[in-house]
Amino acid sequence: MGRKLKSMRRMNKRNELVVIALCVIVLFGAGLSCSKSDNPPIEIIEPVEETTFTNPLITGADPFVFKDGDTYYYMHTVGNALRLWETEAIEDLASATSKEVFRPTAGTPNSRNIWAPEIFKLDGKWYIYYTAGDGDDINQRTWVLENSNSDPMQGTWEDKGKIYSDQADFWAIDGTVMEHGGKRYFLWSGRPDKTNTDLTQKIYISEMTNPWTLTGDVTLLTEPEYGWERNGFGVNEAPEVLKGPDTYFMVYSASFCGTDDYALGMLTLKENGNPLVASDWIKSDQPVFTKKPSANAFGPGHNSFFKSPDGSEDWLIYHANPNSGMGCSGSRTVRMQSFTFDSNGKPNFGEPVATGLEIDQPAQN
Rank of each mutant, 00 (worst) to 15 (best):
R3K: 15
K4D: 13
L5D: 07
R9V: 15
E16I: 07
V19L: 14
I20G: 11
A21T: 15
I25E: 04
I25L: 13
L27I: 09
L27F: 09
G31M: 00
C34K: 01
S37R: 10
E43Q: 15
P47T: 07
E50M: 06
F53N: 03
N55Y: 07
T59V: 14
P63S: 12
V65L: 13
D68V: 03
V78Y: 09
A81H: 15
A81Q: 15
A81P: 10
E86V: 09
E88V: 14
D92E: 12
L93D: 03
S98V: 00
K99A: 01
K99S: 04
E100A: 02
F102A: 04
P104Q: 02
T105P: 00
T105G: 00
A106C: 01
A106N: 11
A106V: 08
N110K: 06
I114L: 02
W115Y: 13
A116W: 06
A116I: 05
I119E: 06
K125F: 05
I128V: 14
G133Q: 05
G133K: 05
D136F: 11
R141E: 07
W143C: 03
L145Y: 00
N149V: 02
G155T: 11
E158N: 12
G161P: 13
D169K: 04
F170E: 07
G182S: 11
G182Y: 14
Y185V: 00
Y185E: 02
Y185G: 00
W188D: 08
W188F: 12
W188Y: 14
R191L: 10
D193A: 06
D193L: 06
T195V: 01
N196P: 00
T197D: 12
T200E: 12
T200G: 03
Q201V: 05
K202I: 08
N210H: 06
P211T: 02
G227D: 15
W228S: 12
E229G: 05
G232I: 05
V235E: 07
N236I: 00
E237H: 04
P239C: 03
G244K: 09
G244M: 11
P245G: 07
T247H: 13
Y248T: 13
Y248R: 12
M250G: 05
A254C: 09
L264F: 04
M266H: 03
L267M: 12
E271H: 11
N272Y: 11
G273F: 07
L276D: 00
V277R: 15
S279M: 03
D280S: 01
I282Q: 13
S284A: 14
Q286S: 15
V288I: 08
K291S: 11
K292Y: 03
P293A: 07
A295Q: 11
N296K: 14
F298G: 03
F298M: 03
G299K: 12
G299T: 13
P300T: 07
N303Q: 14
N303A: 13
F306K: 03
F306E: 00
S308E: 10
E313R: 04
H319Q: 10
H319L: 09
N321W: 09
P322H: 05
N323F: 14
G327D: 10
G330E: 09
S331D: 12
R335M: 12
M336Y: 14
T340G: 00
F341S: 02
F341A: 02
P347Y: 04
E351Y: 01
V353M: 05
E358M: 01
I359D: 04
P362Y: 01
